[in-house]
Amino acid sequence: MINGVLHPKNVVAQLVQQGVSHYVTLPDSETAHMYEALMAEPSITIVPVAREGEAIPVAAGLFVAGQNPVISIQNAGLYEAGDALRGLALGIGLPLVMFIGYRGHNRKGDTPDSAATFLEPYLHMWRVDYFVVESNDDLDRVPLAFERAAKTNQPVAVAIGTEYAKAKTLEEVGGSR
């Protein structure tokens, strides 16, 4: 059993702690509530993109200009973004934390959704380090991802393994502000 349903406001607090400036995103079901939570956080600018392949190049440009971006896309979108990951993250040594919606993940090791079954082999193929975050109890993995990206000058993935709780249920799920 997963304790403490993952709440987007807790993830936003982690982003603020890390000094994140921009959240480059194409929303997906797993991380949709992050968008709503970020609307209430003035220190982070949301940059919506039309296609996932744009996210890494936009983040690369932001980093070059002195900003501290993250991206957030779904696993299916990460596959679409493969060439950008190759050329403009791995290829340039970009220290970028990538939040990846782990669509289809069910913790039982058996899912009919190939978007889920391919994610971890795909990350291994690219030699991208990653952390799976499924609950509030896993949130200490977020700063580890930032630390790893900064230390290695490489992209690091945070796979969001469950849908965020809706904001209105914060108290119900026992999340912290």
């Binding site: 921009h22 440009g61 932001l62």
Partner: peptide, 10 residues
């Protein structure tokens, strides 16, 4: 896309 990121960042 890279140009957009730089423009937003500076």
């Amino acid at each position: 896309s890279v140009a957009l990121g730089i423009a937003l960042g500076d």
